[in-house]
């Protein structure tokens, strides 16, 4: 059975714009994958159509069936994480194995004041 894990150093869940994000990804797959990537992305969640933007990607060369690799990203300045009643914008690092497309995510917030922007409190 395929298992994937992704973690952010010190389980940090809040980042400032332009911060560096460091983490590690691990996988145990039935067969060696063709490719393994970690994607830095933002996405929306709520009522209606979801939107997603992949900002950066780290591709691991010559992946074995089971191993662990570190990764790091330079975070951009925007968009900030925010939440209202109809839509939230969240950030995540996503580990994906190809071609099986097995994946897992670790979510975090990117915001200047140490917490997501709340539209209902603005």
């Amino acid at each position: 059975m395929n298992q994937l894990r992704i973690g952010i150093r010190e389980e940090r869940r809040i980042f400032q714009p332009d911060d560096e994000l460091v983490g590690a990804a691990g996988w145990e797959l039935d067969t060696p994958p063709k490719s393994v990537e970690v994607r830095l992305l933002w996405f929306t969640r709520g009522k209606g159509t979801e939107d997603v933007g992949v900002v950066d990607t780290v591709t691991f060369e010559n992946p074995q069936a089971a191993e662990a690799r570190p990764f790091r990203f330079q975070l951009p300045a925007t968009p900030y994480s925010f939440s209202g009643k109809l839509i939230s914008l969240l950030w995540a690092v996503e580990l994906i194995a190809l071609p099986s497309k097995d994946s897992t995510r670790a979510e975090f917030a990117l915001a200047p004041d140490g917490q997501e922007v709340r539209l209902d409190r603005a």
Binding site: R45, G46, G84
Partner: peptide, 12 residues
């Protein structure tokens, strides 16, 4: 409730 916590969000 925040949209991302709503159990009836589109992705869920």
């Amino acid at each position: 409730m925040r949209a991302c916590d709503n159990p009836f969000s589109t992705d869920r």
